[in-house]
Computed example of a mutant assay.
Amino acid sequence: MSTPEQVSRIYKVRKTVFQMLRDRGYSVDDSEINMTRQQFTQHFGERIKRDELFIHKSKEQDSSDQIYVFFPEGQVGAGVVKNLAQRLKADNIFSAIVVAQNRLTAQAKHGVEEVNKLIRMEVFEEKELVVNITEHVLVPKHVVLSNDEKKEMLKKYGLKDLQLPQILVRDPVAKYYGLRRGQVVKIIRESMTADEYETYRLAV
């Protein structure tokens, strides 16, 4: 049986995943985000089977754009990565998030790099998702621009994308939003002299 602490931890992690998916434009019900700890236990039981935590979602604006979220049990090695990649290929799914209990093995990391040549597989450790980083008081609002919005913004200010300040794709907030290299994020901050002001960052 999972300990109460373990159940609470994975409950919080899964809630953050749902919030993250919604913030990326996937269709997520309020009931999934607002599920209580008690409802979570009633649904999954006290003995959590991680494969039952699996999530499958589609984009709000494009139902063909789908993503799988896996919660593999134990240490994630190269074999696990290979099996997940095979499932994605069989189901014709090109995006996935893997929520690992611990750090991946070196072989698994290499496997993910190979998988990402064909599809997109992101990896988060549980500890990265226990708390939703975007809800921290010091983290301003981030809005990922579409390609058209990026072009319009660059034209408006007479800039090239490489002239923008940068944000690393491995930055925790960039990871949360799934930023890819070349994408631009608008950051909205409160101002002492105005209601808010906007800045832009290029993901590198």
Score class of each variant (00 low, 15 high):
L21R: 01
L21F: 00
R22Y: 02
D23R: 05
G25A: 00
G25L: 02
G25N: 06
G25F: 03
S27Y: 08
S27M: 09
V28W: 00
V28S: 00
V28L: 03
D29A: 08
D29P: 02
D29H: 05
D30E: 10
D30Y: 05
S31Y: 08
S31H: 09
E32C: 07
E32N: 12
N34W: 06
M35I: 05
R37N: 11
R37D: 07
R37W: 09
Q38H: 14
Q38K: 15
F40E: 01
T41G: 06
H43E: 15
H43P: 11
F44I: 08
G45D: 06
E46Q: 15
E46F: 11
E46A: 13
E46T: 09
R47E: 15
I48N: 04
I48R: 04
I48L: 13
K49V: 13
K49S: 14
R50A: 11
D51M: 12
E52I: 12
L53H: 01
I55D: 01
H56P: 04
K57H: 04
S58T: 11
S58C: 11
K59L: 03
E60P: 13
Q61A: 15
Q61I: 14
D62A: 12
S63G: 13
S64L: 12
Q66V: 05
Q66G: 09
I67H: 01
Y68A: 11
Y68S: 09
Y68D: 08
V69D: 02
V69I: 09
F70Y: 06
F70C: 07
P72H: 07
P72T: 04
P72Y: 02
P72S: 02
P72Q: 02
E73D: 13
G74A: 06
G74Q: 08
G74R: 11
Q75W: 09
Q75M: 12
V76G: 00
V76N: 06
G77I: 05
A78Y: 13
A78S: 13
G79Y: 08
V80G: 03
V80D: 06
V80Q: 05
V81I: 09
V81T: 03
K82G: 07
K82H: 12
N83C: 11
Q86P: 12
R87D: 12
K89P: 08
A90R: 15
D91K: 14
D91W: 12
D91M: 12
D91L: 11
N92A: 14
S95F: 08
S95P: 06
S95I: 07
S95H: 12
A96E: 04
A96P: 05
